[in-house]
Design a protein around this nucleic acid. Structure first.
Lengths: 335, 335
DNA sequence: AGGAGCACTGGGAAGAGTAGAGTGCTAAAG
DNA sequence: CTTTAGCACTCTACTCTTCCCAGTGCTCCT
């Protein structure tokens, strides 16, 4: 455990560095703590031995280390009260009755990107709790159809289907009715196997065109269950931080944003404890120069992860409050 | 008109600069054209007077000016034959029968981003030729529904609807049937007014809940017709070009990519001549440091613009061929 | 334990010097 | 009249110093 004064010093350094992105010297602190700079220096080198602080070079001021941020987040930081203005902006979204919950999440994360100047991410994936409520195939012409799949939680997916041989509307209807009979109420992750083992046998012995529709629908389901739902707001926001003044770093980070697979893993390594979790630098498993703050919750049978990506010197107190605020509001409106 | 030798020199400079991004000196050229560097210098300064070439400083080599590129593109460049490899990659998409045309376009532009290392953009907008083929509302629970709108060209849009008072399934069905009766076959840009003037009067005198559904659907239509369909592939590609080595330039360009409104205007200022058009630097009306090559065509009653954004020194001959190739293939498969 | 004093360190800015790739111009040669 | 050789000149990019200064660690004093 570190002393009270050491805690104060660490707090000052972290918060000042977050503001200015410049190493903090002993003088800057001794004014606030009214003791001499030499004393501060002693304390600082103690904190450095604990790996809470770092120097950029032998005679520079101190900056927080990854562990320093960690300590700050875990033991020092207090959530920052939101300003009325910020709350107001978010409230307009929460109170917009014409928005559906998933849209509320998307919109509020857009707003948070603006409020914080960081990059926000919303990751959704239809969870196992979603069940098929209806499958519909609407013919466009003799070779094209649209398949529409609706789940009981209001999820809709659609996909165009093209077949090589003419199919009559009647045949389409027959096949779709048959498929519907079997899969309505089936959780989406079980649909594929149900189609394969229960529906396919019935199809096989009927006409060839039915097979075509079945194949197409089977593909649609496969596509759907593998598609991740990713929304990234304002990647350029985080790039405006001074630590990303290097063109190579920017390109590197940006290409990570473009890799949907990579982005999706943000979802995976969240401890699902229902809390707003903070991952600093290398903890983020995304990029050593960023921190990610994220939380996962369930809404309408869908598991949604919202995340904010900022520099390691992100305003942890503010973003924690913001994410908690959103989470609370969303969970409230879900009840 | 410029002399044959001058044309050769301009060609060499443009092509070499496209390759290396370095100013070209007279010596580099005199080897290829076997005459002395002094002669080349004379010709160069002549080309500079015509504003076809520029210097980066008094004693530097020459680089093409915007007009220089223009001249090159208009009078010198010959479309470059595609390599078998490139064609093969695209063919796998064109011959994939399970892909619908719009997906073919998206996929092939993804491939082109990879082949060229530039950023590709696909802009679509449901055109006036799309007619409503069916409107469907599927209830989720007492307060939530999904509205699905299908056009005769296979376009599907869906939107969740939330109402404040319980609505029975029967009422939903009645209202939707009523609306369908009026708007099936209506071109999408006329739907709003048709709803307003023909359907609304019938709704007004019936029950309150019907009004709620009507309002919701009305909003859905409004949203849909105003939503632009924008897909951007690999913004980071173009940033790897050496002219974007400046963090500020990157941020600037990137924020343009994030602004969907701004991106959409790429569509608007294309001369709709059915050709692949090239807009160099300031001509692009997007960013003075980039060139845009684009073409617009109609497919399934939808107007689609495909564009490639690269540095001014983009490989015009290659991208022209690529875009033409795609365009031809798409128009062929449409027949 | 805290503070004053001092030598030391490393980065950043500013300036000087140098090499090299280019240019424009002139005058001679083809 | 065109081409070319030659030369002085220009600008960049790099390297090397120099100097400043913020900040440190250490020692010694209170």
């Amino acid at each position: 455990m570190i002393s009270e004064r050491q805690t104060k010093i660490l707090k000052l350094i972290v918060e000042e560095y977050i503001k200015t992105a410049r190493p903090i010297g002993s003088k800057a602190i001794c004014e606030t703590l009214n003791c001499s700079s030499a004393t501060i220096r002693n304390e600082m080198s103690f904190l450095e031995e604990l790996n809470l602080l770092e120097k950029t070079h032998t005679s520079s001021g101190r900056i927080p280390s990854e562990q320093g941020y960690r300590y700050y987040v875990d033991h020092i930081m207090k959530p920052k009260e939101l300003t009325g203005e910020d709350m107001l902006k978010l409230q307009t979204v929460f109170h917009n009755k014409s928005l559906v919950l998933t849209d509320v999440v998307l919109k509020s994360m857009e707003i948070i990107s603006d409020l914080t100047n960081y990059t926000s991410i919303v990751l959704g994936k239809s969870s196992k709790e979603n069940r098929i409520s209806k499958v519909e195939v609407v013919p466009i012409d003799e070779f094209n159809m649209v398949a529409i799949i609706i789940t009981d939680k209001g999820h809709v997916e659609h996909k165009n289907i093209q077949v090589e041989e003419k199919i009559s509307i009647k045949e389409i209807k027959q096949t779709v009715d048959l498929i519907n009979k079997f899969i309505i109420g089936t959780p989406i992750d079980e649909v594929s196997s149900k189609l394969e083992f229960e529906v396919k046998p019935k199809i096989a012995d009927t006409i060839k065109q039915q097979k075509a529709i079945y194949d197409a629908l089977y593909n649609v389901f496969n596509d759907i269950s593998s598609e991740a739902n990713v929304k990234i707001n304002k990647p350029s926001n985080i790039l405006s931080e001074p630590e990303f003044n290097d063109a190579d770093k920017i390109r590197n980070l940006l290409s990570k944003f473009e890799d949907k697979e990579f982005i999706s893993q943000i979802k995976q390594n969240d401890e699902e404890n229902g809390e707003v979790n903070i991952y600093i630098g290398s903890e983020s498993e995304f990029d050593n120069d960023v921190s990610i703050i994220k939380t996962t919750y369930h809404v309408n049978g869908e598991e949604v992860t919202i995340a904010l990506i900022g520099p390691k010197r992100m305003e942890y107190d503010k973003v924690t409050s913001l994410l908690n605020y959103i989470k609370d509001n969303i969970e409230d409106s879900y009840e």
